[in-house]
Design a protein around this nucleic acid. Structure first.
Lengths: 182, 182
DNA sequence: GACGGCATGTAACCAGTTACATGATTAT
DNA sequence: ATAATCATGTAACTGGTTACATGCCGTC
């Protein structure tokens, strides 16, 4: 159910349409909580019913009309309540690649190794994206406070995660190469 | 759909009952692919229908009967096929704590900080568990090959992940303390 | 007598993914 | 022409969680 709260946070930062929210979930927020536009529209509908957000239809020139959502007082209260509540314990990580590595000897180890290398590239790409954002938006993080500090810290989490994945893929690739050489 | 394949890997290592599998998913395999007993029973049923595993009813003294599952030839072939197939791109991480940090200013930052500390402890605990396993089962990893190497590498992934989470929680806690001191 | 371990399941629900569906405007 | 961007949604399916349900054995 965190999606609703992620949307509340995003709408508190700035009101917007479902489409705009979907864009944001492709970027900033989406780096640690992904959501497709279908999910977002469904959630917004529910949130209107719950009275957490209000919705204004806005006519635009040269563009389709859009519905701009903003957080209501009761939505803001609900967000504050949720923030004070303990978060669910981090769920077991589900890592498909780990399953393949663990089972590698029941198939073609070389193919699994190729997958490890491919994932290494993916993680390195994301790491580069996060680091570029860090350089651009937080060149000097020492003085950060409040919301920009919070944004920065979340970004740091993404960087740490991707870096650990890259390192792990490297370790795995090295070990598999050494074990089944050619 | 990886659960079915995680079960195949586990049953290749050793045949067993649904209950035993559930135990294993609480331990080794479960460190990177969690599954409840309900899920496991459901999957086993499906896998019998697909012909990937066979099932023998075994009567036990002083214990309830159990059904021992083992991988069939067609299951082994299916596993090898899946291993050669590219894995899905790592999905967007969904991290509830990040959502709370990002939104902290819309609620009580102190409460969010407490949550960060709690998660720090959880991750440190899991890290300690993994490191204990590493010490016990892989005191000298240099010569590892084949299946034990693969097991070791997966464990290393867990260690790297938990360590990066602990480090991140520390960074976040330090920054939040400095920002809203008391 | 209560609790924990062994052993198996069903049912309802919730969240997320994939596929389908529409339609205008702007840029190549 | 065709693709990309803006803009909104529905429907079916899949996978995972939570709650419920049963029953035996051994130990404290």
């Amino acid at each position: 159910m965190s999606l609703e709260y992620a949307i509340l946070v995003s709408l508190q930062e700035r009101a917007g349409s479902g489409y705009e929210l979907a864009r944001r979930f492709d970027k900033s927020i989406g780096y640690f909580w992904g959501a497709s536009h279908q999910q977002i529209y469904r959630s917004l509908k529910r949130m209107v019913e719950l009275g957490w957000v209000s919705c204004d239809e806005v006519a635009q020139e040269k563009r389709p009309d859009k519905k701009v959502y903003r957080v209501s007082d009761s939505g803001a209260a609900e967000l504050a309540r949720w923030l004070a509540e303990p978060a669910a314990d981090p769920p077991a990580i589900r890592n498909e690649l780990s399953v393949k590595i663990r089972g590698a000897s029941y198939g073609d180890v070389g193919q699994v190794l190729a997958e490890v290398r491919r994932h290494r590239r993916r993680h390195a790409e994301r790491l580069a994206v996060y680091q570029a954002i860090e350089q651009r938006d937080f060149p000097d993080p020492t003085g950060l406070t409040g919301q920009s500090l919070h944004q920065y810290l979340v970004l740091r989490g993404g960087i740490g995660y991707e870096r650990s994945m890259v390192d792990w893929c490297d370790e795995v690739a090295r070990a598999l190469e050494a074990d089944s050489p050619r």
